[in-house]
Amino acid sequence: MSLNILIVEDDAELAETLAAQMADFDHDTTIAGNGHKALATIVNGAFDAVILDRVMPLMDGLTFLQHVRQANINVPVLILTAFGKASQKVEGLEAGADDYVVKPIDPLELNARLHALVRARQWSGKESDTMRAGDIMVSPTKFRAWRNDIAIDLPGTEFKLLLELVRHAGSVLTRPMLLERVWNYDFEPTTNIVDTYIKRLRKKLTEGGGDDPISTLRGVGYMLRK
């Protein structure tokens, strides 16, 4: 599957190398050398995925990403950076990234990760384009969510969290399970990232005055009531 990829990288040589590597997989690429140019580009273009450098002049990658998510642009974003501490990975994912990879990376792995991110956004059950739990409905292919038929605007990670809860409504999902399925973590972070995102999601789900549909099992995890 060919992808249309936005490469946000201030190192021109590296950006061209990435573009050439992606072309080997039949992907089309657009290069933006700084965050300001990238914002203007992503608003006016339709991209399947973004490869984002973290450290750039004028506007750093995390600030760019926050602007993108605040604008409800839900394109998958893979941060490709030299900063590989666990705390830095947590910062990137909390800012709205879908994946966080430390340079250098083999082009084959990068291509596989991009396809995995795009597939995750396009996933739908064979039975239907929508999934329902109680009065909550989600459309994995349209990346939309509703409660009582009222649309809920959710940025990428919050939508993925809700989708996972809806898929397993009535069952308890532990924090390690959510970390692996939503954030692709294979380690326990030092921050309470799951609790933070559950709090944000609860706020969005109850803005219309409905009851909190998420149950907390202390010391275990969370469950979306059917």
Rank of each mutant, 00 (worst) to 15 (best):
M177D: 13
G156L: 11
V50C: 07
N72A: 14
V101E: 13
T41Q: 10
G210V: 07
V101C: 07
G219F: 03
A32W: 01
P176G: 10
G96F: 09
A120R: 15
A97Y: 05
R113H: 03
W123R: 04
F47L: 13
N4C: 07
A19G: 03
L52F: 01
F25C: 03
G209D: 11
L205G: 00
F64S: 08
A86G: 08
V90A: 11
M223I: 15
P104D: 13
H36F: 05
A23F: 00
E180R: 13
R200A: 10
D186L: 14
V43K: 14
D98H: 13
M137H: 02
K199R: 13
R113N: 07
N34F: 05
D28N: 14
Q70F: 04
Y222E: 04
L205A: 02
R121S: 04
I136W: 07
V166R: 00
G209Q: 08
Q122R: 12
F25A: 11
F25P: 00
D11P: 00
R218D: 07
I7Y: 00
T41M: 12
A23K: 09
L62R: 01
I193T: 15
I5P: 04
V68W: 04
N148C: 06
A82Y: 02
L3H: 15
L39Q: 06
T130V: 13
D98A: 11
T196P: 01
L201F: 13
S2R: 10
K103L: 05
L201S: 11
P104M: 15
K89L: 04
S215M: 14
T130Y: 07
T63F: 06
G208S: 14
P155K: 02
R144V: 11
S215D: 14
R144T: 14
K89D: 01
L205Y: 02
G33P: 02
A32C: 05
T174A: 07
